[in-house]
Design a protein around this nucleic acid. Structure first.
Length: 273
DNA sequence: AACCAGGCGCATA
DNA sequence: TATGCGCATGGT
């Protein structure tokens, strides 16, 4: 893999095992939308970009400073040998089928607060509506980046708000959870930085102290926001997969990368039949 | 322990 | 066009 960049463009070449549309649109991130030309527009880490892919070449257009290329390499987890991970997962026949049906799904390494907050919103909810609530959250309380783009609002900003302030989001009963999460994160009660490296059970316990964060949301925050690919969110689809295909538990080859396995199985199970 | 809370997409009628 | 179902968590 190589990278070239200037103030307007970052280009990654010879990128392995990454399909941009699939990765941006498989239910793990809520701020990406497809442009009419097939490129993808979105905001992450306070930066608005358009991303296009031609085979193993990824082009990111935006307004960049020195070092930004690493932000995007991290976002797509380009330093991980995904081919090796997938080859290993393919030792299991179901995973082999899922990976070969949807090659190039990667777990994005999103901002930890954005992931936590987004997956609190995701509970008891469907993807179009989650996207709408997240969009309104950003428009109302994020930083205006110009061109109609807004950053994801910080925990600090949201921690000063009330449930009534969040009324325009139409997030329903989740509003109080967003406020509680913002206050615990902004106040240091929950240390998101620490969760990426501490014992995973300790991380789970810390997260579920937030109102509105149960086992599923905690697992999502760890997987998508804290780089914990050993986290394993179990939603209704994964529950079905487990009972139908793995009644005795996950196969050995998923050890340590359960979250990556989950994403392939989840997408496959949702899209077949 | 079963149900509701806010509301919307989705499948079915 | 209307009706009911699913969603994931906490509180009753």
């Amino acid at each position: 893999m190589t990278v070239n960049f200037d103030k307007k463009t970052i280009v990654f070449r010879n990128v392995d095992a990454l399909n941009i549309p699939l990765s941006l649109d498989c239910g793990q991130a809520f701020r990406w939308s497809e442009n009419s030309d097939g490129s993808w527009h979105g905001v992450a880490f306070g930066k608005a970009v358009d991303i296009s892919q031609k085979e193993d070449k990824i082009v990111i257009n935006g307004s960049f400073c020195e070092g930004d290329e690493q932000i995007w390499a991290d976002y797509f987890d380009l330093d991980r040998d995904y081919s090796a991970v997938c080859e290993n997962l393919k030792k299991d026949s179901h995973l082999k089928t899922a990976i070969e049906a949807y090659p190039g799904i990667r777990i994005l390494r999103q901002d930890s607060w954005e992931a936590l907050c987004s997956f609190i919103i995701s509970q008891n909810n469907n993807i179009p509506r989650i996207k709408g609530i997240v969009e309104r959250l950003c428009v109302h309380f994020g930083e205006d980046l110009g061109n109609g783009d807004f950053s994801f609002p910080s925990a600090e900003k949201l921690s000063a708000l009330t449930v009534d302030d969040l009324a325009p989001l139409r997030s329903g009963f989740r509003a109080k959870y967003i406020i509680d999460a913002a206050q615990k994160v902004a106040g240091g009660e929950v240390d998101l930085q620490k969760l990426s490296c501490c014992d995973i059970d300790e991380a789970r316990e810390e997260l579920i102290r937030i109102k509105g964060v149960g086992a599923k949301v905690a697992e999502c925050a760890l997987l998508y926001g804290c780089g914990r690919v050993d986290a394993f969110p179990v939603d209704v689809w994964v529950r079905r997969i487990m009972s139908e295909l793995y009644p005795d538990g996950l196969p050995e080859c998923t050890k340590g990368v359960e979250g990556i396995a989950q994403q392939f199985l989840f997408h496959w199970r949702r899209n077949v039949e």
